[in-house]
């Protein structure tokens, strides 16, 4: 049982992070906390992807070691696939990180607009103001 948990522990870590983020997004009453929850949530997905790329057994960062010029000059160099980790998830996550930052930026700008209008960022106070003024 313990071995089973350890052999897949990357999944447990990301599931816990994802659920923390999701709970903060849905359950918290403060809009900034919701936003931080959103960041945790997206980070969990990013960690999940990065963990897919890992290869055990001596694999290293996906940068060609050795004489690049020589290998390039001689055409098809024989490169052992098992000695480098999978670069694709890293590429995807570079994009996803940027997307997550952009979303956070836009959300913060929206929060500024909300604060200008209601002078608060607490969900229940905003709902009360909306009820009172009818907007």
């Amino acid at each position: 049982m313990l071995e089973y948990i350890i052999s897949k522990y990357n999944f447990w870590v990301y599931i816990i992070l994802l659920l923390i983020g999701l709970y903060a997004m849905l359950g918290k009453k403060n809009l900034v906390k919701k936003l931080i929850g959103m960041n945790i949530f997206q980070s969990a997905v990013i960690l999940f992807y990065v963990s897919i790329g890992v290869k055990k057994g001596g694999a290293t960062v996906p940068i060609f070691m050795g004489d690049a010029h020589a290998a390039h000059g001689h055409g098809q160099a024989i490169i052992d696939v098992a000695s480098y980790i999978n670069p694709l998830p890293h590429v995807l996550m570079l994009t996803a990180i940027v997307v997550s930052i952009a979303t956070t930026g836009v959300a913060l700008a929206v929060l500024i607009l909300i604060f200008r209008r209601y002078k608060t960022l607490e969900l229940d106070e905003i709902i009360k103001i909306r009820k009172d003024t009818g907007v």
Binding site: K8, G53, V54, K55, K56, I79, V81, N86, P87, L88
Partner: peptide, 28 residues
């Protein structure tokens, strides 16, 4: 999670279908 490949398995589909070609051919 139950049926996921083990963490860091070099023979999992993720590491053996598309990505080997990147590692082998990127330099060339």
């Amino acid at each position: 999670v139950e049926e996921m490949p083990d963490w860091g398995d070099p023979n999992s589909p993720a590491s053996s279908h598309v990505s080997p070609k990147y590692i082998q051919e990127a330099l060339e």
